[in-house]
């Protein structure tokens, strides 16, 4: 952490503005990065609660959940995983360019990340649409039409599916908005001095959002996928 923080002074063009209550830039940098990490810990607990509930019901109704999860499109899910991992690469490159002071490249990398995030959200929206189309979206008072066994637990599955991926998507939208706010500064060449703090913090957030998906994808799409046909109970 401190090695990256000393980079600005190595290029030594201009010192970034240090807020009044910090002693120096290193302190501000460390505090902001630790703040984001602490925030991400709260996010882990937040998603952890939802994942815990999902696991408990998965354990309670294994067959119903296995059959319900077969309704999800594993190929779209896989493609989205690929997209999101790539977006992690672009944001990591953005942080790297912020370190080296290549401000415009930071801007392009953020645009790339937003673009990939938008693709993910688009595909997610299409997946949601198909659920509505097949009447398996247990939202509001929409008809829930499940031909198979155990409609109750199946409804819980889809409820949690919409809940968890919905909260995840909301986090992505927040991330996209935040990143967009950095783009003008990047093209005004404001990261030329290696003042990477803001980009670094938003990068941490984006990586976390990726990581949540890395858990959601197998939990929702992959586990027990081998069970394809509903057995005659």
């Amino acid at each position: 952490m401190s090695t990256t923080a000393t980079l600005p002074s190595a290029t030594a063009k201009r010192t970034p503005v240090v807020a009044h209550h910090f002693d120096d830039w290193d302190q501000q940098y460390d505090a902001c990065v630790l703040g984001m990490w602490t925030f991400l810990v709260t996010e882990v607990m937040f998603f952890g609660g939802a994942i815990g509930v999902y696991m408990i019901y998965r354990w309670q109704y294994p067959m119903a959940f296995a059959h319900a999860s077969n309704e999800l499109d594993v190929w779209l899910g896989t493609f989205n995983t690929f997209i999101l991992l790539t977006s992690s690469l672009t944001v990591a490159l953005g942080v790297r360019y912020a370190h080296t002071g290549e401000s415009r490249k930071v801007g392009w990398m953020l645009i790339g990340t937003i673009f990939l995030g938008a693709i993910f959200l688009g595909i997610k929206a299409y997946e949601y649409y198909t659920k509505f189309h097949h009447n398996i979206a247990p939202l509001l008072d929409l008809p829930f039409d499940w031909g198979g066994a155990d409609p109750g637990p199946t409804k819980i599955f889809f409820g949690l599916y919409f809940g968890m991926t919905g909260i995840h998507a909301l986090h992505m939208i927040i991330g996209v908005v935040l990143m967009a706010m950095f783009i003008p500064a990047a093209f005004r060449n404001e990261y030329r001095d290696g003042n990477s703090l803001g980009v670094e913090v938003i990068g941490l957030y984006w990586h976390f959002v990726d990581l949540v998906w890395i858990f959601l994808f197998p939990l929702l799409y992959l586990v027990d996928r081998a069970i394809t046909a509903p057995p005659a109970l």
């Binding site: 709260t42 937040f46 609660g49 509930v53 509001l140």
Partner: peptide, 24 residues
Amino acid sequence: VLGTPVLAITILLVALERGLKIGI
């Protein structure tokens, strides 16, 4: 930092249950 987010998700799940009528 560790406990409050769990309350938040719990409240959200109750909201899901009441608003969307899912039997959590």
